[in-house]
Design a binder for these strands. Structure first.
Length: 302
DNA sequence: AATCGACCCTGCTCGC
DNA sequence: TGCGAGCAGGGTCGAT
């Protein structure tokens, strides 16, 4: 479920409610949640217990908590990826257990940080911090060191990223979703950025102008920024809830999920097409398909 | 080396 | 009402 704006909402919630707290107990029950940890859930429990959360950081869709003021290369952090359905919830002491809860950390103020994840694509790992491979000088959890800067970062350069994209030999949408090219963009905001740009996601990157690719990246940044503004308003003081994402920004979407509905620019029905085991939503008039591209099923009704 | 499809999960909605 | 098909905002991995 979460793309960059949703993850940022979660990060802010953690910053407000978890940073500064000491972890007094940890219980990791989800095997899949801990699948990236060589020692499994037990290792996560060991390495988190009695640590103090010193910061809540994010790059793209990757989220991590720094521990014990050790914000340096080699220091442990708790890397969290929400996957498709992960939630980081902060509950009061004694809150009832919920379905799909796979991990929780008891905090020294009596509250509980919970990881709830229906589809179990998300996970927790305790890993060392490392230098980002892109040379930005940013510290990242080692397994995420290969991730590119996201469009909200100071060091993000739309023009340089566009140049990189144009050198690649594949479809533009694939590259927008490639976290090593630009991070944070998922299926929704890729579709939205392409709609704003008037570009079909299956156009080959090399066939696009530098200007149009640069603008697409700027559109991606803008649409995620709009979503973040909307998401901030629905943020509850106590609960760090990713689910809010579906409720607030839906109304502002121009392409994603609008199969069969009129394009806001020209009125043509938005089309959904299979793409990378998912769906792409686009206006067939504003975003003309590349030639020889009759691959993939189309549907007008949802 | 780069590209691309298959795969990993659970649950909900929709049409028959 | 029951049931299967289709769909869901993530990343990783192996084959080519």
């Amino acid at each position: 479920m979460p793309e960059l704006p949703e993850v940022e909402v979660v990060r802010r919630g953690l910053e407000d409610h978890v940073v500064g707290r000491r972890i007094v107990g940890v219980d990791v029950t989800g095997v899949r949640t801990a699948r990236r940890q060589p020692g499994g859930g037990a290792e996560i429990e060991d390495r988190l217990t009695n640590r103090t959360v010193s910061g809540a950081r994010r790059r793209g869709k990757y989220l991590w908590l720094t521990l014990d003021d050790d914000d340096a290369v080699g220091a442990d952090c708790l890397l969290v990826h929400l996957g498709m359905s992960g939630q980081m919830l902060v509950t009061d002491e004694g809150a009832p257990p919920v379905r799909h809860m796979h991990a929780r950390a008891l905090l020294d103020d009596g509250r509980e940080l919970r990881f709830v994840d229906q589809r179990t694509f998300g996970g927790w790992t305790v890993v060392p911090l490392a230098d980002a491979l892109d040379g930005t000088g940013v510290l990242l959890p080692a397994p995420a060191a290969h991730i590119a800067a996201d469009p909200f970062e100071e060091g993000f350069d739309p023009l340089a990223t566009a140049r990189l994209i144009r050198r690649r030999d594949t479809e533009i949408k694939r590259l927008l979703l490639d976290q090593t090219v630009v991070s944070g963009i998922g299926n929704i905001y890729a579709d939205e950025a392409l709609w704003r740009s008037g570009i079909h996601g299956r156009r080959r990157a090399g066939a696009l102008t530098l200007r149009s690719v640069t603008q697409t990246l700027e559109h991606a940044r803008d649409v995620m920024s709009d979503a973040l503004v909307a998401g901030g308003t629905s943020f509850d003081a106590l609960y760090v809830n990713v689910n809010g994402a579906s409720g607030y920004f839906d109304r502002s979407l121009d392409a994603y999920g609008r199969t069969g509905l009129p394009c806001a620019r020209c009125g043509t029905a938005v089309v959904r097409e299979d793409f990378m085991n998912r769906g792409s939503h686009f206006c067939p008039v504003c975003q003309p398909a590349p030639r020889r591209s009759a691959v993939g099923r189309r549907s007008v009704a949802r």
